[in-house]
Each structure stands twice: as structure tokens, then as C-alpha cells.
Measured scan of single mutants.
Amino acid sequence: LQAFIKTLTGKTFTVEMEPSDTIENLKAKIQDKEGIPPDQQRLIFAGKQLEDGRTLSDYNIQKESTLHLVL
């Protein structure tokens, strides 16, 4: 599935991932794409901060969901 990552500066980019991917995997993909170390990334979806060990499906993240990236 493709999801949108929106930063506080208003920049939006897309990442490809599977519902079974962990938040940790997602942070690694963001690092590959944007060069931001995972330990500096905080991802917010539906008002909740996402925990590394959980999966996208745990948070009911669907295709074309928008996640907010806070540094």
C-alpha cells in the first residue's frame, strides 16, 4: 500500500509498504528516502504516536492514509 508522510514544514512524500510492516520498518524507509535517522522520527496517525514494535494494521493504516512526521 502507498501512504503519505507529511512533515511539519508541509512537505509530503509517499512510501510503499505492507500492512504487516512494523513502524520500525516504516521509519527505515523514511530514512532511505529522506535521510532522517529513525531515532529522530515521531510518527503520528489519528492523533496517536506510533510505537516501533506495532504494525500498520495494528493502527488500521490503509492505503493513501496520511501520517504526520514530527522531528
Rank of each mutant, 00 (worst) to 15 (best):
Met17Lys: 00
Leu43His: 00
Ser57Trp: 06
Glu16Pro: 10
Pro37Leu: 06
Leu50Ala: 03
Met17Tyr: 15
Glu34Phe: 14
Lys48Leu: 12
Thr55Asn: 06
Asp52Leu: 05
Glu34Arg: 09
Lys33Cys: 05
Lys11Ile: 09
Asp58Pro: 00
Gly47Asp: 06
Thr22Met: 05
Asp39Phe: 10
Ile5Glu: 02
Phe45Ile: 06
Ser65Ala: 13
Asp52Pro: 07
Leu50Cys: 02
Asp32Lys: 13
Leu67Ala: 02
Asp58Gly: 03
Leu56Asn: 01
Ile44Gln: 06
Ile5Leu: 03
Lys11Arg: 14
Lys33Ile: 15
Gln49Thr: 14
Gln41Ser: 03
Phe45Arg: 02
Tyr59Gly: 02
Gln62Pro: 12
Asp32Pro: 01
Lys33Asn: 05
Lys11Phe: 12
Thr14Asn: 05
Met17His: 04
Asp32Val: 13
Asn25Gly: 07
Gln41Thr: 03
Gln31Arg: 12
Arg54Met: 12
Leu71Lys: 05
Asp52Ser: 07
Ile30Gly: 00
Ser20Lys: 07
Gly47Val: 02
Pro19Lys: 07
Leu67Pro: 04
Thr55Gln: 08
Lys29Phe: 06
Ala46Cys: 09
Ile23Cys: 01
Arg54Phe: 13
Val70Leu: 14
Lys48His: 11
Ala28Lys: 15
Leu1Asn: 06
Lys63Gln: 14
Val15Gln: 01
Leu1Gly: 06
Gln31Ile: 02
His68Ser: 08
Leu69Phe: 06
Leu43Pro: 02
Lys6Val: 15
Thr12Gly: 06
Ile23Trp: 02
Asp52Asn: 12
Leu43Cys: 01
Asp32Tyr: 09
Glu16Asn: 11
Glu16Met: 12
Arg42Ser: 10
Ile44Cys: 12
Lys48Ser: 10
Leu71Gln: 07
Glu18Ile: 10
Glu18Ser: 14
Ile36Ser: 04
Met17Asn: 02
Leu67Ser: 01
Asp58Val: 02
Leu8Tyr: 12
Thr55Leu: 11
Ser65Gln: 08
Leu71His: 06
Gln40Trp: 10
Arg54Ala: 09
Pro38Glu: 06
Leu50Asn: 01
Thr14Tyr: 12
Gln31Phe: 15
Asp39Ile: 08
Gln49Ser: 10
Gln2Tyr: 13
Ala3Gln: 04
Phe45Pro: 01
Asp32Met: 13
